[in-house]
Simulated scan of single mutants.
Amino acid sequence: MKQKPKTKLRDLLKSKKAKTRKLSELSKTEQNRLAKLNGMLDELRRRENVQNRQLQTWLSEDEYAQVDIEWKEQLELREELKDKPDDLKRYEDKLKEATFNDNKAERFCKRGNKDKSTKFRNLSESHCEDALEILQAIIC
């Protein structure tokens, strides 16, 4: 199981959870802020976008700065993951070709063209075998 990296924002949220107050004890401004932040949280959980200006409006300067820092860390991580070994790229290319040819074979099969369907199915299997060989070479 992956462990989430500890960050200042997560620590801050944990400490705030420890100091939680009842909703009735919050001022109108705090209740409004809480409602807006919960709404943004729901959007993020649904994998929808939340605009930066909304975050900047409803988060404190420190909280917004922390979000910005974590976003930059995320971009760096994504950039590192783009740097794949050549063998892995070859494997992915073979897999894409196999999938493409299998889809073509399926289309020809539905149209009743058995000869072309068989041709593309065999080509797809060949690419799958190549991809498997590449994968086995990566693992060993």
Rank of each mutant, 00 (worst) to 15 (best):
M1G: 15
K2S: 14
P5V: 10
P5Q: 05
T7G: 00
T7A: 05
K8D: 14
L9G: 08
L9H: 08
D11N: 13
L12Q: 05
L13W: 14
L13K: 09
L13C: 10
L13R: 15
S15H: 06
S15L: 11
K17E: 05
K17Q: 09
K17H: 10
A18P: 05
K19V: 01
K19I: 01
R21F: 01
R21E: 11
K22R: 09
K22N: 05
K22Q: 05
K22F: 06
S24G: 03
K28A: 04
K28Q: 03
E30N: 10
N32C: 11
R33Q: 11
A35Q: 14
K36W: 01
K36M: 09
L37G: 03
L37D: 06
N38T: 15
G39W: 11
M40L: 07
L41W: 04
L41Q: 07
D42M: 12
D42T: 13
E43G: 00
E43S: 10
R45Y: 14
V50P: 02
V50G: 02
Q51R: 13
R53W: 07
Q54R: 09
Q54M: 15
L55H: 00
Q56Y: 07
S60P: 00
E61K: 04
D62M: 05
D62P: 05
D62H: 08
Y64F: 07
Y64M: 06
Y64C: 08
A65F: 02
D68W: 12
I69D: 11
E70C: 04
W71S: 07
W71V: 12
E73N: 08
E73S: 04
Q74R: 11
Q74L: 11
Q74F: 07
Q74P: 03
Q74E: 13
E76V: 03
L77D: 14
L77M: 04
L77P: 10
R78Q: 11
E79W: 08
D83Y: 01
P85Q: 02
P85A: 13
P85K: 05
D86Y: 08
L88N: 01
K89C: 02
Y91T: 01
E92Y: 04
E92Q: 12
E97W: 08
A98P: 03
T99Q: 15
F100P: 11
F100M: 15
D102I: 00
D102C: 10
N103S: 11
K104D: 14
K104H: 06
K104R: 15
K104S: 01
A105W: 00
F108Q: 00
C109A: 14
K110N: 15
K110Q: 14
R111H: 14
R111D: 13
K114C: 09
S117D: 02
S117K: 02
T118V: 11
R121I: 02
N122H: 09
L123V: 07
L123T: 12
E125M: 07
S126I: 06
H127Q: 02
H127E: 00
C128G: 11
C128R: 04
C128W: 12
C128S: 09
C128V: 11
C128I: 09
E129P: 01
E129H: 07
E133T: 07
E133M: 05
I134E: 02
I134G: 02
L135P: 04
L135E: 09
Q136T: 08
A137T: 08
A137I: 12
A137E: 15
I138H: 04
I139C: 02
C140Y: 08
